Amino acid sequence: MSAAPDPAGAPILKVEDLHVRFPVSGGLLGRKRTLHAVSGVDLSVQPGQCLSLVGESGCGKSTTALAIMGLQPPSSGAITVEGRPVYGPGAPDRRARARLAQIVFQDPFSTLNPRETVGRALSQPLMLHGVRSRAERAERVATALRQVGLLPEHAARYPHEFSGGQRQRIGIARALILGPRLIVLDEPVSALDVSIRAQIINLLMDLQQNLGLSYLMISHDLGVVEHVSDRVAVMFAGQIVEEGGWREVFTAPAHPYTRRLIETIPNPARLTGGASEILPPAPEPPSGSIFWPPVDRRPDISQPPEPSALVSIGEDHRARVRPV
């Protein structure tokens, strides 16, 4: 994990009251409904920090990431990267946004053109951003490949000539080629063999330290999240239900959904018969409220979410509650 950033500094990423809704139709009469995929999400990432957004499939993590990258227009809310709005008046164009933030996807092979060499895939963004010198492009491609543990001569090869871990390194190199300060990591190791995951995670941590990068990591693997994160935000049914420093969230989870997620982390002690670590009792929500939303049933996300708020549970630790 990176050194703790200055909490008083301006965040490199700020998301305020983000809503993403999709019109859907179904049923015998084809009546139109609204799917509330993301509802009232607030996030911030400080320079040099890694914030992990965790939750089960379908909770809205990747939709949030796409909105941050400018690939999914929000229904309402505000997103700024380095103080510049991603949408609305004053928002930079796509080329300028690419220099502010980049994304590394889950499956690197599907994001690479099988008919293009790695060198061409990495040099095309440079050409689009005005680097006309062929020698300069070749040098920057070679530098990016070295940064991710590959060799400059790999630029002449095609994607099918690489292993899954090497292709993910290429995807990381492509994200770095324009020099952004914010990288969105969408399940960056979930498609890799277990033996390769640690190598890629260590690479990402080294790059963060050496290049001063900030990460927003989208993941459902809490073992990875615990290893690399400075802060954690837990998402359920389109809402952030708990957020705080990784230690506070993992050692004293408050929301019932967070506790369920943490209990799914494999514990070797349970297999060997040793003493397994037991979570401490959950803190009580503030008087006159309950943790929200309930996890015994998934909320109907075709309906607007009920009013609730993230309230302080402890130092640098908040959870969502609803008055009763």
Rank of each mutant, 00 (worst) to 15 (best):
Y215L: 02
A173L: 06
M217C: 07
V232S: 00
Q166D: 05
D230G: 14
P180T: 11
L182A: 13
S219Q: 08
L178R: 12
R167E: 07
E226I: 01
L185N: 04
G179I: 09
R157A: 11
H227P: 11
Y158N: 10
I218P: 01
D230C: 14
F236I: 02
D206H: 11
L203R: 03
Q209R: 15
L176Q: 00
L151Y: 15
A198S: 14
I172G: 00
I200R: 09
V234I: 11
I170K: 10
A155R: 09
R231D: 05
A237W: 05
Q209Y: 14
V224P: 02
G212N: 01
I177G: 01
I218N: 02
S163T: 14
P159D: 09
I196N: 12
S219T: 14
A173P: 06
Q147T: 09
Q199C: 02
I218W: 02
V194P: 12
G212L: 09
L182D: 11
H220M: 06
L204G: 01
F162T: 03
E161F: 09
P152E: 10
I200V: 15
G171K: 08
D221F: 08
I218M: 03
D186K: 04
E226S: 10
V225P: 06
S219P: 09
I201E: 06
L150H: 04
Y158Q: 12
G149D: 07
F236E: 01
L176W: 00
F236Q: 01
